[in-house]
C-alpha cells in the first residue's frame, strides 16, 4: 500500500485544540489498517484567539511529524470546524471519536467522549460506524469544564486531580444533575472540612454515574474506551470501573483508556480525511466537490 497519504485531523473543543497527523497507504479503504500515528499535539485555548491556537497546534503537529504542509492531502476538522479556515472537510464529533477509538483500541465497541462541555456515549461496530449515541443534557455538570472549575476552587492543578481522587477513601456525594448545585455542594464540603481527595472522588463518582447511564441507554457491550479531554483522568477511570462493577452484569462492560485517548477525535478526523481523500481522487468522486 504505497505511496503514503499524509492527513491531519484537528479537534477544536471549547477549551483545547488537539491535532494529529496520520500516515496511511493508498487503497486502505475505510479500515486503513496500515495507518500510523505520526504526531499528536494538544494546546489549551486559555482566552486566546482560537484561530491562532488552531494554527499553532497544526504547525506543531506537522513539525513533530516532520511533514511539510504541502504534503498534507486532507485537513479534517471535528468540533468547532468553522474556526479552521484551511480545513478541507469536517466530521461530526461522534463520527471522529468512534473512528479514533477503534484505531486506538480495535476491540472498542463503544466510546465515552468526555469533553469540556458535554459527555457522550457512542456505540460503534467493528468498522467504527456509529450505531447509537446519547449525550448529557445542556448542563455542564459531569464534564471537564466543571471539574476544572472545582479544581481551581480547591487549589489543585489539573494534573493532580486524578492521582488525588484515587486516594479518596470516603467520597462525599455530589449533585449529578446541576453544575450550580454541585458547586454549592463542594463549598459545603470544604466548609465541613472534607479532604480534597474525598471531594474529588465524590465528583468523579457523580460524573461516572451520569456517563454509565448514557452507556446503558445506548446498550453498550464489550470494551468501552474513554476519549476526549478527560480520557486519561485516572480518577474518572477508577470511578467508571467501580460504577460499572456495581451496576452492570459482571464482564458485560470493560472500561479502558489509552494514552492517546485525548486525541481520539483528531486521530479519527485524520483517518476519515484519508478515506475521503482516496474517494475524491477517483475520477467519479471528483465530481462530488465539483472539481
Amino acid at each position: 500500500m504505497s505511496p503514503t497519504i499524509v492527513t491531519a485531523g484537528i479537534d477544536i473543543g471549547t477549551s483545547a485544540v488537539k491535532a494529529a497527523v496520520v500516515r496511511s497507504g493508498q487503497g486502505g479503504g475505510r479500515e486503513r489498517q496500515d495507518a500510523v500515528l505520526a504526531s499528536r499535539v494538544a494546546e489549551r485555548i486559555r482566552r486566546r484567539d482560537p484561530r491562532q491556537v488552531i494554527r499553532q497546534c497544526y504547525e506543531a503537529a506537522l513539525a513533530e511529524a516532520g511533514v511539510d504542509s504541502k504534503e498534507v492531502a486532507y485537513v479534517a476538522t471535528t468540533g468547532e470546524g468553522e474556526l479552521c479556515e484551511f480545513r478541507v472537510g469536517h466530521f461530526y464529533g461522534m463520527t471522529a471519536h468512534a473512528r479514533g477509538a477503534l484505531f486506538l483500541d480495535p476491540e472498542a465497541r463503544a466510546a465515552v467522549d468526555v469533553g469540556a462541555l458535554h459527555g457522550r456515549a457512542i456505540r460503534l461496530d467493528e468498522r467504527s460506524k456509529v450505531l447509537g449515541y446519547q449525550m448529557t443534557s445542556q448542563c455542564a455538570s459531569g464534564t471537564g469544564q466543571f471539574l476544572e472549575n472545582i479544581a481551581r476552587y480547591l487549589g489543585v492543578t489539573l494534573e493532580e486531580i486524578g492521582p488525588l481522587s484515587t486516594k479518596g477513601d470516603a467520597p462525599e456525594k455530589i449533585s449529578g444533575i446541576c453544575a450550580v448545585l454541585a458547586e454549592t455542594d463542594v463549598i459545603n464540603l470544604v466548609s465541613r472540612g472534607i479532604s480534597v481527595p474525598n471531594i474529588l472522588r465524590g465528583i468523579h463518582e457523580s460524573m461516572a454515574g451520569r456517563l454509565v447511564k448514557l452507556l446503558r441507554a445506548i446498550r453498550a457491550q464489550g470494551v468501552v474506551l474513554l476519549t476526549g479531554g478527560l480520557a486519561t483522568d485516572e480518577g474518572l477511570l477508577c470511578a467508571m470501573r467501580d460504577e460499572v462493577k456495581s451496576s452492570w452484569k459482571a464482564g458485560a462492560i470493560e472500561v479502558r483508556t489509552h494514552a492517546d485517548g485525548v486525541h481520539a477525535g483528531a486521530i479519527g478526523a485524520a483517518l476519515w480525511g484519508a478515506y475521503r481523500h482516496e474517494r475524491l481522487t477517483t475520477k467519479s468522486s471528483q465530481k462530488e466537490i465539483g472539481a
Partner: peptide, 17 residues
C-alpha cells in the same frame, strides 16, 4: 446541527463510492 452533521457524515463515509 447534530442531525445535519450525522446525516452529512453518513453520506460522506457510508454511501456507496
Amino acid at each position: 446541527r447534530e442531525q445535519a452533521g450525522t446525516f452529512a457524515d453518513s453520506i460522506k463515509l457510508w454511501s456507496e463510492p
